[in-house]
């Protein structure tokens, strides 16, 4: 019964929060309305929602989020220095990174994090989801970059989410 009514409980909570934020209120009427939307919308689109793997370590997820936020700020100072400095000294590169994440959602998170953090933009994902192509603004040593992304972002994501590895 519960599973039929709320096929995606997390999505319902997110919709309720979104509604309250959009109206910028904690009015009981709006909580009721947001709750109703949180029930109706997931019920209407139950077959279209992308399956999201279960979170195994909540603390790990929080620690990962904080680390990514700090890295975003740090990466921005780095990029600002590169942008304002002499452009002739930059050594841009396309780097291929082999990944062992197979789940679509987790792969999306990884590519987004890579785009937002240290001087890299993810440019393509291979058709078999085994490699991602990354463009870096300044990479004197591509192998070190691959190792850093794998240990710093990919390994924690694999631990946090319950997903099969290849």
């Amino acid at each position: 019964m519960m599973a039929r009514l709320l096929p995606h409980p997390a999505l319902s909570v997110v919709l309720l929060l979104l509604w309250l934020l959009l109206n910028n209120t904690l009015n009981p009427g709006h909580i009721l309305l947001g709750g109703a939307l949180g029930v109706i919308i997931p019920a209407c689109m139950r077959n279209f929602v992308m399956p999201v793997p279960k979170v195994k370590q909540r603390i790990g997820l929080m620690r990962f989020t904080v680390r990514v936020l700090v890295d975003i700020v740090m990466a921005n100072f780095h990029v600002a220095k590169l942008v304002l400095g002499p452009t002739r000294r930059l050594s841009p590169a396309f780097v291929e990174i082999p990944v062992s994440i197979t789940d679509d959602f987790v792969l999306t998170v990884l590519t987004s994090v890579v785009s937002l953090t240290p001087g890299t933009v993810s440019a393509d994902v291979s058709d078999d989801r085994r490699r991602i192509l990354v463009h870096t603004l300044d990479a004197p040593d591509p192998d070190a970059l691959v190792a850093e992304i794998k240990t710093r972002y990919e390994a924690p994501l694999l631990e946090i989410f319950e997903c099969s590895t290849t």
Binding site: S91, P92, F94, T111, S112, V121, A123, L133, P142
Partner: peptide, 26 residues
Amino acid sequence: PVSAHMLAKAAMQQRLPRVDRTRGEP
């Protein structure tokens, strides 16, 4: 990141010129 990814894909498909010292191939 999503719009950057899409634009990078479009640029690679159009084979836009890149700086000579760029290492690696798109």
